[in-house]
Amino acid sequence: MEFADRVVQAVRRKGNPVVVGIDPRPEELPTGFLDRFPGTRTGVADALRTFGCEIVDVVAPLAPLIKFQSAFYEAYGPEGLGALHATVEHARERDVLVIFDGKRNDIGSTADAYARAYLGKEPVGGSFEPSWHADAMTINPYLGSDGVDPFVKIAAREHKGVFVLVRTSNASAREFQDLVCDGLPVYRHVANRLKAWGKGRDGKEGYNLLGAVVGATYPSELAELREALPGVLFLVPGYGAQGGEAKDIAAGFDANGQGALVNNSRGVTFAYKKPTFRDRFGTDWQRAVEQAVLDMIDDLAQNTPAGKLRPA
């Protein structure tokens, strides 16, 4: 089944478009969590793996997708990458779609190697094996078609997905993305090119394997891009800790409540740090994480077309 079809069906099945982002920071782990592990690089990596897997266990019954931010694992070298790989495998066993958030970008054979690494297969002995079992990944389009085509080609072959940075959620995004060239801001040129890159790659549910990263912190641009990119899945960061609200995201959905996948990282994975949850759940940090997801689902249902996904 095509990636976009799997996404649409997973969102429909679970009745919400929530993406839980796992960005583990050792200093933010629950009180006493790190004390269970040796004070070594391997010990910290084991703590990240254990924490990530426990997050997966809490959110898998609720959310259709999980996004792993690779940088927080890469910071701990090979041990950290091993922890990431193990946590991705655990997520797949729990029947959750996985997005590898590494924002990779290069050209030619190097872009092809990145695409094979995260979406495809590599020769091992007499066969071909996947190194990572991600369902989709994020990429940077700055180098143009030479840096995007290899990802699209391999994603199409392997029935995976690619999310291209179009309008990011960070405050300084305007420095380049709003620059006007030939009458349009740069982010609109990227959006137009995305349509060309994805031509002929639609699934049966009407969405393309090539998606767009569009931040919740720029609601007017999000609405503009939804109109410009029908049939393109939006991965929407910026909800929660970065200040984006459900009402800001509403225009990113289609009439059926599909089309926008709303990411929440710190607001979910570190929910137990919020005073309201801490007062309510004490040291039961898993309950706080679960409640944060449930609250997000309710918020999106009440304030966006995602409410149409809920069973009557």
Rank of each mutant, 00 (worst) to 15 (best):
Q291I: 08
L235C: 03
G267Y: 03
L229K: 05
L233A: 03
D146E: 15
Q177C: 08
G43P: 09
T283N: 15
L309V: 08
G52Q: 01
A86S: 15
E27L: 09
L229P: 01
T87R: 04
Y142I: 12
A83N: 03
N263G: 02
R41G: 11
E2R: 14
S172Q: 05
P141L: 08
L29Q: 04
I66T: 02
F51A: 00
L97K: 09
L294T: 13
A4R: 00
Q291D: 14
A47R: 06
V88W: 09
A306D: 07
K199H: 12
K67N: 12
P38T: 14
L179D: 05
F100T: 01
A91T: 04
V58W: 06
R174D: 10
L222H: 04
S169M: 04
V88D: 08
P61R: 13
T31H: 08
D23K: 10
I55D: 00
F100D: 06
L233G: 01
G126S: 15
L235D: 00
A134V: 09
P64K: 14
V88H: 11
A155P: 03
A4F: 01
V289F: 02
T138D: 01
Q69N: 14
A223K: 11
T110K: 03
V232L: 05
C181P: 00
A191S: 06
D5S: 05
I99H: 06
L165M: 15
I107S: 07
S70D: 13
R201F: 12
P24D: 04
R36L: 07
G82F: 00
T304V: 05
L233M: 02
N208I: 13
Y142W: 14
G80H: 01
K67M: 11
F51Q: 00
H189R: 11
A312L: 12
D57K: 07
K103P: 13
L300R: 05
H133S: 11
G282Y: 08
N208M: 12
S145A: 13
D46I: 02
